[in-house]
């Protein structure tokens, strides 16, 4: 249920910083990134180029792709200097 006019902050202010994370853009994609861990050197170049900030790092290493937000643009695969990422058809997507 969407909130009524008495329940929302005044003036359209949004008081929960960064709450767009509640909105998943992952279902936009037709292709999803797959990483070849053998080729990946954890240079983290892809992390910086990803428009969705969905390549997650743990202890200085690439941990996973957060597919809840990945829109499937393929920039990570194109920019990887080691060709460690390939875009594969997202079988869960509705074609």
């Amino acid at each position: 249920m969407k909130k009524n006019y008495k329940q929302i902050p005044i003036g359209g202010m949004i008081t929960k910083a960064g709450n767009s994370e509640e909105y998943k853009t992952g279902d936009w994609k037709s292709f999803k990134p797959e990483r070849d861990e053998k080729k990946c050197t954890n240079c983290l170049i892809c992390v910086n180029y990803c428009p969705e900030n969905c390549i997650k790092v743990k202890n200085g290493k690439l941990n996973h792709f957060d597919l809840d937000y990945c829109k499937g643009c393929g920039i990570c695969a194109t920019e990887c200097p080691f060709k460690a990422i390939v875009m594969e058809l997202d079988t869960e997507c509705e074609l």
Binding site: K2, K3, N4, Y5, K6, I8, I10, G11, G12, M13, I14, T15, A17
Partner: peptide, 20 residues
């Protein structure tokens, strides 16, 4: 408490904000 002021409100909330 970082606030966002002046967002895009579409048909789902604009009316409520104006009603306030």
């Amino acid at each position: 408490k970082p606030v966002t002021i002046g967002p895009l409100e579409l048909f789902d909330y604009y009316f409520e904000t104006k009603r306030q």
